[in-house]
Lab assay of single mutants.
Amino acid sequence: ADDEVAKLLVDAYRKNDEDKLEEVKKRYNISDEQVKRLIRKVL
């Protein structure tokens, strides 16, 4: 599931889509710190 979330985050990140990032964060209840970590893992 982590990889799936990471893909969604990276996708939103690449598109610079703040709304999507927020949506994913809320849906999976993850912190900014986790977001950064997941994005770093993929990029």
Results as ranks from 00 to 15, higher is better:
residue 43 L to N: 04
residue 21 L to V: 07
residue 37 R to D: 12
residue 19 D to H: 13
residue 11 D to I: 05
residue 10 V to G: 04
residue 23 E to L: 07
residue 36 K to L: 13
residue 39 I to S: 01
residue 41 K to M: 13
residue 14 R to L: 15
residue 16 N to C: 15
residue 37 R to V: 11
residue 30 I to L: 15
residue 30 I to H: 00
residue 7 K to N: 08
residue 17 D to L: 06
residue 38 L to Y: 05
residue 8 L to G: 02
residue 7 K to C: 14
residue 21 L to I: 14
residue 6 A to K: 07
residue 11 D to H: 05
residue 22 E to T: 09
residue 20 K to W: 08
residue 3 D to P: 09
residue 40 R to F: 14
residue 1 A to L: 15
residue 20 K to S: 08
residue 38 L to G: 00
residue 36 K to Q: 13
residue 13 Y to S: 02
residue 9 L to E: 00
residue 13 Y to I: 12
residue 11 D to Y: 04
residue 8 L to N: 02
residue 31 S to L: 03
residue 21 L to G: 01
residue 2 D to E: 12
residue 17 D to G: 03
residue 3 D to S: 11
residue 27 R to I: 09
residue 24 V to F: 10
residue 23 E to K: 07
residue 32 D to C: 10
residue 39 I to G: 01
residue 18 E to M: 15
residue 42 V to N: 06
residue 40 R to H: 13
residue 39 I to C: 07
residue 1 A to D: 13
residue 38 L to V: 05
residue 16 N to K: 12
residue 40 R to D: 12
residue 4 E to P: 08
residue 4 E to A: 11
residue 19 D to I: 13
residue 23 E to S: 07
residue 17 D to Q: 06
residue 27 R to N: 05
residue 7 K to T: 08
residue 17 D to E: 05
residue 1 A to V: 15
residue 8 L to Q: 10
residue 25 K to W: 02
residue 37 R to S: 12
residue 42 V to G: 07
residue 20 K to T: 12
residue 29 N to C: 10
residue 37 R to P: 02
residue 21 L to P: 00
residue 16 N to F: 07
residue 9 L to M: 02
residue 27 R to C: 06
residue 19 D to A: 15
residue 39 I to L: 13
residue 12 A to S: 03
residue 16 N to T: 03
residue 26 K to H: 07
residue 9 L to A: 02
residue 18 E to C: 15
residue 35 V to R: 01
residue 24 V to Y: 14
residue 13 Y to H: 04
residue 14 R to D: 05
residue 36 K to M: 14
residue 10 V to L: 15
residue 14 R to A: 08
residue 25 K to Y: 02
residue 16 N to M: 09
residue 13 Y to G: 01
residue 15 K to Y: 07
residue 43 L to S: 05
residue 40 R to K: 10
residue 6 A to Q: 07
residue 5 V to Y: 05
residue 27 R to P: 00
residue 1 A to K: 10
residue 13 Y to M: 08
residue 15 K to L: 13
residue 40 R to T: 10
residue 4 E to R: 10
residue 3 D to E: 10
residue 37 R to W: 10
residue 1 A to Y: 15
residue 18 E to F: 15
residue 29 N to F: 05
residue 36 K to A: 13
residue 22 E to M: 11
residue 33 E to D: 11
residue 4 E to L: 12
residue 35 V to F: 14
residue 13 Y to R: 02
residue 3 D to N: 09
residue 27 R to D: 02
residue 3 D to I: 11
residue 8 L to E: 07
residue 9 L to N: 00
residue 29 N to Q: 08
residue 27 R to H: 07
residue 5 V to S: 03
residue 20 K to A: 15
residue 20 K to H: 05
residue 27 R to E: 05
residue 31 S to G: 05
residue 37 R to G: 08
residue 14 R to G: 04
residue 38 L to A: 04
residue 41 K to Y: 10
residue 33 E to G: 06
residue 17 D to F: 04
residue 22 E to A: 11
residue 2 D to G: 09
residue 32 D to L: 04
residue 25 K to H: 01
residue 37 R to Q: 13
residue 36 K to P: 03
residue 9 L to V: 08
residue 3 D to M: 11
residue 29 N to A: 07
residue 22 E to W: 08
residue 41 K to T: 10
residue 30 I to C: 06
residue 6 A to V: 14
residue 7 K to A: 13
residue 7 K to F: 11
residue 12 A to Q: 01
residue 33 E to V: 07
residue 41 K to D: 08
residue 13 Y to K: 02
residue 23 E to I: 06
residue 19 D to P: 07
residue 1 A to W: 15
residue 42 V to S: 09
residue 20 K to G: 10
residue 35 V to Y: 11
residue 39 I to R: 03
residue 24 V to R: 01
residue 26 K to L: 11
residue 24 V to A: 03
residue 19 D to K: 15
residue 42 V to H: 12
residue 3 D to Y: 12
residue 32 D to R: 03
residue 32 D to F: 04
residue 33 E to M: 07
residue 26 K to W: 05
residue 43 L to D: 04
residue 32 D to V: 04
residue 3 D to F: 11
residue 32 D to K: 04
residue 42 V to A: 14
residue 14 R to S: 09
residue 14 R to T: 11
residue 16 N to A: 07
residue 4 E to I: 12
residue 13 Y to N: 01
residue 14 R to Y: 13
residue 9 L to R: 00
residue 20 K to I: 09
residue 6 A to H: 06
residue 38 L to E: 01
residue 11 D to C: 14
residue 4 E to Y: 15
residue 25 K to R: 10
residue 17 D to I: 03
residue 20 K to Q: 10
residue 19 D to Q: 14
residue 2 D to K: 07
residue 14 R to E: 10
residue 43 L to H: 04
residue 27 R to L: 13
residue 33 E to P: 03
residue 34 Q to H: 08
residue 15 K to P: 01
residue 37 R to C: 14
residue 34 Q to M: 13
residue 26 K to P: 00
residue 16 N to I: 03
residue 20 K to V: 09
residue 4 E to H: 12
residue 18 E to K: 15
residue 20 K to Y: 09
residue 36 K to F: 08
residue 16 N to Q: 10
residue 22 E to N: 13
residue 14 R to K: 11
residue 1 A to P: 14
residue 4 E to M: 13
residue 5 V to R: 03
residue 20 K to N: 04
residue 38 L to F: 05
residue 40 R to V: 08
residue 14 R to F: 15
residue 35 V to N: 01
residue 40 R to P: 02
residue 3 D to R: 09
residue 6 A to S: 09
residue 16 N to E: 06
residue 33 E to K: 06
residue 5 V to Q: 02
residue 13 Y to T: 02
residue 21 L to T: 03
residue 39 I to E: 01
residue 4 E to C: 14
residue 18 E to V: 15
residue 39 I to K: 02
residue 9 L to Y: 01
residue 30 I to R: 01
residue 23 E to R: 07
residue 8 L to Y: 04
residue 5 V to C: 11
residue 5 V to N: 01
residue 11 D to T: 04
residue 25 K to I: 07
residue 36 K to W: 13
residue 26 K to M: 09
residue 19 D to N: 12
residue 10 V to A: 12
residue 37 R to K: 12
residue 38 L to Q: 01
residue 34 Q to W: 10
residue 8 L to W: 05
residue 15 K to W: 08
residue 27 R to Y: 08
residue 43 L to T: 05
residue 17 D to H: 04
residue 2 D to F: 14
residue 18 E to Y: 15
residue 33 E to N: 06
residue 1 A to S: 12
residue 6 A to P: 02
residue 6 A to G: 07
residue 14 R to H: 09
residue 31 S to T: 13
residue 28 Y to N: 02
residue 7 K to W: 14
residue 30 I to S: 00
residue 5 V to W: 12
residue 8 L to H: 05
residue 13 Y to D: 01
residue 21 L to M: 11
residue 23 E to Y: 10
residue 26 K to F: 06
residue 29 N to E: 05
residue 41 K to G: 08
residue 10 V to W: 15
residue 17 D to A: 04
